[in-house]
Design a protein around this nucleic acid. Structure first.
Length: 586
RNA sequence: CGGGGCGUAGCGCAGUCUGGUAGCGCACUACACUGGGGGUGUAGUGGUCGUCGGUUCAAAUCCGGCCGCCCCGACCA
């Protein structure tokens, strides 16, 4: 590509509304432009990157035996009513009406459409397993779009769905997808981790997320230092402390604690570690039966003062309302007779769930359920019953790994992929059956597998940048090589050499950007090429040509290398010989 | 939706408190010089100051409504 025929829309200054580095650099390097909140146009430079990411995903999906389809963005409400999600999905689902008043939505995902398609097309177990994917624009009316392309309302997603006659078959495909995902992110040159995950609103049982590790990530991931255990912090099990609970040494004492409410305040006031103060949270209970639903039923949760409640784990517990809802201050005051800051498990007349670690405390402090008073020297069993012990806290760095090997470490991650074993959730609701070997109708089992293709692009930048701009991994770079002439308008020699090199590089399938603008200044071109992040650059000038060389520099290095013209081709081959997709783009 | 902030040229900003000719830097156009890391000079282009209404002789500036955008929380590829 010739720069003179290609929009290079770089900017010197960082737009004020871009917070994270990937957003800033995508705007500055002229990859994207904002249309409205969470809606972005892809400029030619950015689109090339997006297409490269797409091509890698497509290749690996095809390799894994998944068939490409393309489904409509606009979907009829009826399908969503069938699956129950028209009600369930909430305001993130953009609902629209056509001119006849019929209801539709813009697809945030395509389980309904693919299930409808497959139930009509597949009749026999002999056609299974079958997997389909598409790469397509999704719409989710995010409450708060942010970080540019990272969390936008319209985004490009690869979504795949698999159909099975048995759990074993589903398991197998899940495994294949897991491997394909690993291959995809590896080829893109990303530092990523597959982690155990919650299934969230999509539903189903078994699930992994693929995270690109980056400080700006929105998720916390827990890793073992010794094994390959990795889980989203939402899911990571906090193992029970080992050994017996220490024996009680102290007697219960009332201590006046005027105006001391938070764990911080109380522990300081009492001169105790936060870890030896129990914190008591009050949440709503699950109505026992729907008719007699009494929204005022409460449950107490007890944690160590230095631990944080994990709402995902907690709301899955029997008896706890899902989604997890905290009782209001008035509710607590009215039913328990004291302020939120003075609660404790002793003498509390509602069900109590105690965290595993909190259950291991001895001689601890807690609220006395009386304003301005706390108890010290409290012990389970002796002073209050230890009826129900569960895992309800977030793991902390340094906790034991649930698989017994090593301790946990916590890092931030950007979720770029998610795979689920859905089971029969959609096929059951939408009656997607095939005949089995016995000639009987059987509901198919499903898996679903997503990759945020546009998000991958942003996360690659989060991981690869420096003060001068982006450092694209080879596989995602919009161009592999920048060809930069010095004073081409003055030197016939430079012009001829560049034209010749350009033609040769194109000929050998190298994605090259020829900075051929008349009179463009060297400094400007170098700055642009660095900002855009092209991995390799060749500078051609009279000085070098006198000696028969051109200059090469890798974007990740700071030194130039003189390469004899005659050897350039061989030289470039060495690092361009990776599985690239230049040809798909030309 | 709750809390905080911002809307003045394509981008970054000043001007608003204290009402009186709409400014600066970058970018862009033309010409000249310059020519190995965003060069210099001269001359230019570009803004109904988010929007609607009010106060006033006079509003970017004061008052009110609306709209948009960004940040912090719940959601997710």
């Amino acid at each position: 590509m010739r720069a003179s025929q290609f929009l290079i829309a770089t900017q010197k200054e960082t737009p004020a509304d871009a917070e994270v580095i990937s957003h800033q650099l995508m705007l500055r390097s002229g990859m994207i432009r904002k249309l409205a909140a969470g809606l972005y146009s892809w400029l030619p430079m950015g689109l090339r990157v997006l297409r490269k990411a797409e091509a890698i995903v497509r290749e690996e999906m095809n390799r894994a035996g998944v068939q490409e389809v393309l489904m409509p963005v606009t979907q009829p409400a009826e399908l969503w009513e069938e699956s129950g999600r028209w009600e369930q999905y909430g305001p993130e689902l953009l609902r629209i009406k056509d001119r006849h008043g019929r209801s539709f939505c813009l697809g945030p995902t395509h389980e309904e459409v693919i299930t409808d398609l497959v139930r009509n097309e597949l009749r026999s177990y002999k056609q299974l397993p079958a997997s389909f994917y598409q790469i397509q624009t999704k719409f989710r009316d995010e409450i708060r779009p942010r970080f540019g392309i990272m969390r936008s309302r319209e985004f490009l997603m690869k979504d795949a769905y698999s159909f099975h006659i048995s759990q074993e078959s589903l398991q197998q495909t899940y495994e294949v997808m897991y491997q394909a995902y690993s291959a995809i992110f590896q080829r893109m040159g990303l530092d990523f981790r597959p982690v155990l995950a919650d299934t969230g609103s999509i539903g189903g049982s078994h699930s992994h997320e693929f995270h690109v590790l980056a400080e700006s990530g929105e998720d916390d991931i827990a890793f073992s230092t010794e094994s390959d255990f990795a889980a989203n912090i939402e899911m990571a099990e906090a193992v029970a402390p080992t050994g017996e609970r220490p024996a009680a040494k102290e007697q219960v004492k009332d201590v006046e604690t005027p105006n001391q409410h938070s764990i911080e305040e109380v522990s300081q006031f009492l001169g105790m570690e936060k870890s030896n103060v129990a914190k008591t949270l009050i949440v709503l209970a699950e109505p026992e039966d729907e008719e007699a639903s009494d929204p005022s039923q409460l449950i107490a949760l007890v944690l160590r003062g230095d631990h944080e409640l994990n709402d995902i784990k907690t709301e899955k517990l029997r008896g706890v309302a899902s989604p997890l809802t905290f009782a209001s201050e008035e509710q607590v005051k009215q039913q328990l007779g004291c302020n939120v800051g003075s609660l404790g498990p002793v003498g509390l007349n509602i069900p109590i769930i105690v965290d595993r670690s909190a259950a291991h405390l001895a001689d601890f402090a807690c609220g006395a359920n009386k304003e301005g008073v706390h108890l010290t020297g409290v012990n389970w069993e002796r002073d209050c019953p230890l009826a129900r012990v569960e895992d309800i806290r977030n793991v902390l760095a340094g906790d034991l790994s649930p698989d017994g090997k090593g301790v946990l470490e916590i890092k931030r991650g950007i979720e770029v992929g998610h795979i689920f074993q859905l089971g029969s959730k959609y096929s059951e609701a939408m009656n997607a059956r095939v005949l089995n070997e016995e000639g009987r109708e059987q509901v198919m089992l499903m898996g679903c597998y997503g990759i945020g293709v546009s998000r991958v692009v942003a996360s690659a930048i989060e991981q690869n940048n420096d003060d001068n701009g982006i450092l694209w991994p080879n596989a995602l770079a919009p161009f592999q090589v920048a060809l930069i002439p010095i004073n081409m308008h003055k030197s016939e020699q430079v012009r001829e050499t560049c034209e010749k090199l350009y033609a040769e590089l194109l000929e050998s399938g190298v994605d090259v950007l020829f900075m051929d603008q008349e009179k463009a200044r060297l400094g400007g071109m170098l700055a642009d090429v660095e900002l855009i992040g092209l991995p390799h650059r060749i500078v051609v000038g009279d000085r070098g040509l006198e000696k028969g060389v051109v200059e090469y520099r890798n974007r990740r290095e700071t030194e130039n290398q003189d390469i004899p013209l005659a050897e350039l081709h061989e030289f470039l081959k060495r690092f361009l010989n990776e599985p690239l997709n230049e040809r798909m783009l030309s």
